[in-house]
Simulated assay, not measured.
Amino acid sequence: MALSIWEILAVFAAGIGAGTINTIVGSGTLITFPVLLATGLPPVTATVSNALGLIPGSISGAIGYRKELAGQRRRIIKLSVGAAIGGLCGATLLLALPSTAFETIVPVLVALALVLVILQPRISKAVQRRREHTGAAPRTDGGPLLFAGLMLASVYGGYFTAAQGIIYLSLMGMLLDDTMQRLNAVKNVLAAVVNTIAALFFLFVAHFDWTAVVLIAVGSAIGGQIGAKVGRRLSPTVLRALIVAVGTAAIVQLLLR
């Protein structure tokens, strides 16, 4: 469909905003999706176009966090397998289920993730005390529980993507003994995997708008670099507060849709 100059600027700006916030926290889809709907795109077409357009932003953000990715190769490879499986399942569900299928459960998932993010320091300390008591060594990959949790979160990510990064961070923060910045770097890689897998699926079986895809792609790639520069400078406390603030806004927007 043909877009006016103002719609083109709005979609491009939304792409920059989404790329930035996705790299730092997640939930960038809550910026781009309403803008795409406002241009007249049907919901499923907007979702597919958005997923395709956000791939460069996810990759750009992951590159921006390459320093924090050092030493996490095995962890990333293992968790990426689960993310890819979940992303493909979610993309399939998007085309098979009605667009309202996830609307009830999504706010609940995001709210639970925010509670886990808030409680993560206490949970980590409790887990550390338990390990010291039992003498058990921490698992660097989070074990089967994290793999399964991230795979399920990726099903949702392949379906809609909004706030999937917050869910990833809450699960990893609870089950991995590492810094928030390093976990955020892993989150960006997993988001890139899910978006790419879903997009490759959509290329063959779904309808999308190339103009919207290109505008969001260029904007999100720029935003990914901005987000990496800003996000890497945030302290764990500030980053956690930002996650909670963005997540709360996401819940409000999802409930009002």
Rank of each mutant, 00 (worst) to 15 (best):
A163C: 07
A51Q: 11
L190T: 09
K78V: 15
E68N: 12
T100A: 12
V189G: 13
L190H: 12
R66A: 06
I16D: 07
V127N: 15
G26V: 08
Q181I: 08
Y159I: 01
R131F: 14
I24L: 04
G143L: 03
G223E: 01
G64I: 03
V252Y: 12
N22S: 04
L79I: 04
L242K: 04
I55C: 09
L36M: 10
R75D: 03
E68K: 10
M180W: 15
S124V: 04
G135A: 03
K125Q: 15
R139Y: 15
T39P: 06
L112R: 01
I76H: 05
I59M: 07
I251G: 03
T100E: 11
S49Y: 05
L234Y: 12
A206V: 14
V189L: 01
L97R: 07
A14T: 04
L203Q: 05
F204C: 07
K187Q: 05
L116K: 02
F102C: 01
L112D: 00
P34E: 11
T29V: 08
V246A: 03
A13Y: 07
L109G: 08
R131P: 14
V108H: 08
A84T: 02
G40I: 09
E68R: 02
V25L: 02
L37K: 02
A250N: 05
V81W: 13
L145W: 13
I31R: 13
F102T: 01
T23E: 01
L169T: 00
A10C: 13
L239N: 05
K67L: 05
L109C: 14
A199E: 02
A163T: 05
G157V: 07
